[in-house]
Design a protein around this nucleic acid. Structure first.
Lengths: 343, 343
DNA sequence: CTGAAAGCGCTTACAG
DNA sequence: CTGAAAGCGCTTACAG
C-alpha cells in the first residue's frame, strides 16, 4: 500500500501537508491541496489506521470493540447489525469478541481488544460483578453496557425492562388460566436472568399463585440445556401446564423437548419465549414471544459510546427500551387434562 | 496501559531486552529474564498489537479480516464461529466485515480491512468476477475464498459441491413423484446460485422433465424476497407441487408465503431448503434441507489461510466438502389435487 | 500556508 | 548476552 511519504513525493510537498489535506482541519492553499488530492487519487492512497491509532491513542483510533455473549443467538446478531451500521456510518470499525458464555474467554477478548487499541467497548458483562469490566471502566476506558447493566458503577447502558417484560408474559399465561407455570432461565448470575425471574415471581405472587422451586430451572443458555431443563420439567410428578423460557436458545431447546414427547402445544403445554425472532411465526406452532429490538439496542449503544468519546465526562445515560409481547399460537387457554386434575 | 518502556524501567534493562524475553526468540540470561518477567507481571503488561502490526507489517500482525455476505444467515454465523475458534487458538484476532449482500459495502470493507493492517483475508466474493477481490489477490494479499470460489485466479478456497447437493435435493423430490418443481434462488450472479441452479436443471433433464423458466426465480437473498418470489410461484396458472429454495433466508420467506396461503406442507406443496439449521426440525413442518457444515468450512478456511501465511508460495488448495440431505417432513409424496390434474 | 522534527510502542539488525 | 538506534506510517506542536 502507498504511504504518506509516497503521496508527498508525488505531490512534491511534505508529509505534514499531505496529512493536513487528508484531515482537513488546518488550511492548505488551494493549489497545493489539489496537487495532493491528485497524488492521492493516482496512488489510490488510504491512510493506515494502524499508524493513526498508534500515533493518536484513543482519539482518532476509530475502532470499537464488542464483547458479546453469543453470536449464535439471533438477538445478539441483530444487535451486532445495529452496532455495525451505526459505527461504520461514522467511520468506525468494529471488532467482535464472541465469548460464547464463557467467562475466561470474555476476559481474554477484553485483553485482546485493549491491545488492539480500541477506543471504546460495547460489552454485555458476564454478571453484575464482572471484575474485568469494572476494572476496564475504572482504568478510564469508554464503555457502554448492553443487554445487561452494571450496578454501582458509572456506566452508560442500553437494555429493556426485563422484569416488566417477563411479568407481562407470565400475566398473559395466567390470564389464559394457567396456574402451574414452569420457567427455564439462563445462567443464574446474569442480570437478565435475575430480572426475568423476578418478573415471573411478581406475576405469580400478584395473582396469589405459589412459587414452587421445582418449577424453576436456570442453566447456561444453549440449545441442549433447553432440551434437558424442559425435559426435567415435563418429568415432574405434577408437570407445569405452561413454560416460560428465558432466551432464544433455551426456547428452541424447549420446543424440541416438547415435540420429542409428542405433546401438543398449546393444548398439552403452552410456551412463551423471551426474545422473538423474525421467523418465530414459522415455528411449530407459531411462537408467542417477548420481542425486544436488538438492532435498536445496538444502534443506541453505539450512539452513546460515540457521544461519550467526544464528551468523556458527561453524566451516564441509562436507556431503557420497551419490549412487547407478540401473541401468536403457542399459548392457548389452559384446558388440558393435567390442568384440571391439578386444580 | 503499560508500555515496553515502563517494563524496561522497572526491570532496569533496555526495551530491546524486554522485547526479547517476550518474543522468546533470542537468548536472554536467566536472571535478567526473571527480572523482566516479574516486571511484566507486576505491571500487568501486554504488548500493543497496534505497534507490533505497524512495526512488522504483515508478519506478526496476527489479524484476519473477514468479508462475509450476511451475518443474518445462520450458515455464515456458523462459519464465523469456526473461523473465530481456529484463529483465536493460534493467537489471531478476527475483524468482521458484514457486507449485507451489498457490493459497494463489500468493497468498503476490503479497503477498511486493508488499512487495518490485516495480514490475510477470508472472503466470500460477491461473484466470480469480483474485481476488488481479484485485485486484492493480485496485489499480494493472502486470501482464502469461502462458500464461493473464484475461477481463473490462484486462490485457496473451501466450499461444498453445490451442484451435486442441489441435484440430490431435486432427485429426492422427483423420486417422491414431483414433476413440477419451482426454484427460488439467490442473486443470479453468485457462484452458489449458479451451481445450485445447474444441479436443479441437471436433475430435471436426467429424469426427462422440462425446464420451465416460469418456475425459476432468482432474487437477492433475504426473507422478504423469499416471500415475494414464492408467492409469485404460487400465483402461477399451473403452480409447482414442490419448491426448492436456494438458501436459509429465502426458505424462511417461502414458508411464510405458503402459510399465508394456508397451504399444507407437504400435501399441497412440498419444500426442500438449501442450508440446514440446528432448529430446522422445529419449523412447521420440520424442514427437509441440504446440510452443509458452516463451522467446518470456517475452520478449514482459517487453517488454509494460516498455513499460507507461513508458506506464501505453496500451490493453491481447493477444499470441497460434502453436503447431505436431511430428510424430515416437508417433502411428502406428491399426491395433491393439482399434481394429478397437471399430469 | 508549509516544513522539519518528535514521538506513539514496538522489533531487529548492528555493535560491543 | 545486552543496549543504542533506526524505522514502521502517521499527527501535531513548533518554527518560519
Amino acid at each position: 500500500m502507498a504511504s504518506l511519504k509516497d503521496v508527498a513525493e508525488k505531490a512534491e510537498v511534505s508529509i505534514a501537508t499531505v496529512s493536513r489535506v487528508i484531515n482537513g482541519n488546518s488550511h492548505v492553499q488551494m493549489d497545493t491541496r489539489h496537487k495532493v488530492q491528485k497524488a492521492i487519487k493516482e496512488l489510490n492512497y488510504r491512510p493506515s489506521r494502524v499508524a493513526q491509532r498508534l500515533r493518536s491513542k484513543g482519539k482518532e483510533s476509530k475502532l470499537i470493540g464488542l464483547v458479546l455473549p453469543d453470536i449464535e443467538n439471533p438477538f445478539y446478531v441483530d444487535m451486532i447489525r445495529g452496532i455495525e451500521a451505526t459505527a461504520y456510518n461514522q467511520g468506525y470499525s468494529v471488532i467482535i469478541g464472541n465469548f460464547s458464555q464463557n467467562k475466561s474467554r470474555s476476559e481474554m477478548y477484553i485483553d485482546i481488544l485493549k491491545s488492539e487499541g480500541v477506543n471504546g467497548f460495547i460489552v454485555a458483562p458476564v454478571n453484575n460483578e464482572d471484575p474485568k469490566v469494572r476494572e476496564l471502566i475504572k482504568s478510564g476506558y469508554q464503555v457502554t453496557c448492553v443487554d445487561r447493566d452494571m450496578e454501582g458503577v458509572e456506566v452508560d447502558s442500553v437494555k429493556i425492562n426485563n422484569e416488566e417484560a417477563a411479568y407481562g408474559a407470565i400475566k398473559h399465561l395466567i390470564n389464559l388460566g394457567h396456574k402451574r407455570i414452569g420457567h427455564v432461565g439462563g445462567q443464574w448470575d446474569i442480570p437478565t436472568t435475575k430480572s426475568r425471574l423476578a418478573g415471573y415471581k411478581r406475576a405469580l405472587l400478584e395473582s396469589g399463585l405459589p412459587i414452587e422451586e421445582e418449577l424453576i430451572i436456570t442453566r447456561s443458555s444453549d440449545f441442549q440445556n433447553g432440551v434437558e431443563a424442559t425435559t426435567a420439567l415435563l418429568d415432574l410428578n405434577r408437570p407445569p401446564t405452561a413454560v416460560f423460557t428465558g432466551n432464544n436458545l433455551l426456547t428452541l431447546g424447549a420446543l424440541r423437548a416438547i415435540h420429542a414427547r409428542e405433546l401438543k402445544i398449546p393444548s398439552d403445554i403452552a410456551i412463551v419465549g423471551f426474545d422473538d425472532m423474525y421467523w418465530s411465526e414459522l415455528l411449530n406452532p407459531p411462537l408467542t414471544a417477548v420481542h425486544q429490538d436488538g438492532f435498536e439496542i445496538g444502534r443506541r449503544a453505539t450512539e452513546l459510546l460515540l457521544s461519550r468519546l467526544v464528551e468523556p465526562n458527561r453524566p451516564c445515560i441509562k436507556v431503557i427500551l420497551d419490549a412487547k409481547l407478540r401473541i401468536r399460537k403457542s399459548c392457548g387457554a389452559a384446558q388440558n387434562g393435567r390442568l384440571s386434575t391439578d386444580l
